[in-house]
């Protein structure tokens, strides 16, 4: 499948039964989606569950997909709803200590291992801790911005809030992260 083929067309092709279109779409989106979920819930098992559930819902709703909706926004919206449901069922967010443990367990490239570059590790650790300390809404807005490159309008649509609210959340998140990195 052509790499330049838009996600939206691929989704429509899959809705018509083209399994190769789904494979291409999945390969493009899996990492971004997984990281968004994992950084939101900070639990690999939960992230696995929500990741699979997100795709399951997308597959079930494939015939209702309309090309007017950007595919990435649609996919992340499904995941966002599942994350919100997860937080409603459980405690609001994982503690910083648990998050750090998860982060250590996650595979990182060999060259980026903390023991290879302590200063880099310290900086990344601070960023990770800062992210974990953010309120859920601010963290979500920040991750969506950094992970998938969504704009204010798209984040607002995805999270069901106004653009000014999203901008405000991003401003707070940005300020706290800068502060933590400057320590």
């Amino acid at each position: 499948m052509d790499a330049a083929y838009p996600d939206e067309k691929l989704m429509q092709a899959y809705a018509r039964g083209d399994l190769r279109a789904f494979d291409t779409l999945y390969a493009r989106s899996r990492g971004m989606l997984y990281r968004y979920i994992l950084r939101s819930v900070a639990d690999r098992a939960v992230a696995d569950e929500l990741f699979q559930e997100t795709w399951s819902r997308l597959i079930a709703a494939r015939e209702r997909y309309r090309i007017e909706a950007k595919f990435t926004t649609w996919l992340l919206q499904i995941a966002h709803n599942l994350v919100v449901d997860h937080f409603r069922r459980s405690r609001p967010q994982a503690g910083a200590e648990e998050t750090e443990t998860v982060m250590r367990e996650q595979d990182a490239p060999e060259t980026e291992r903390p023991d290879h570059a302590l200063s880099d590790f310290e900086e990344r650790r601070r960023l990770q801790v800062a992210l974990d300390d953010l309120p859920a809404e601010q963290r979500e807005a920040f991750v969506l911005r950094m992970e998938s490159g969504l704009g204010l309008a798209e984040i607002a649509q995805l999270t069901g809030t106004g653009q000014e609210t999203v901008k405000s959340r991003l401003r707070y998140a940005f300020a706290k992260i800068r502060e933590r990195l400057a320590e």
Partner: peptide, 29 residues
């Protein structure tokens, strides 16, 4: 900031999860 964020671990779904999702898509079709 972007470069620092990209240096964070980039976790991805494992092969088992990939297989499970692809199987879901295949069964639906």
């Amino acid at each position: 900031l972007d470069a620092l964020y990209r240096k964070l671990p980039q976790p991805e779904p494992d092969a088992r999860l990939d297989a499970a999702v692809r199987a879901l898509a295949q069964r639906a079709v």
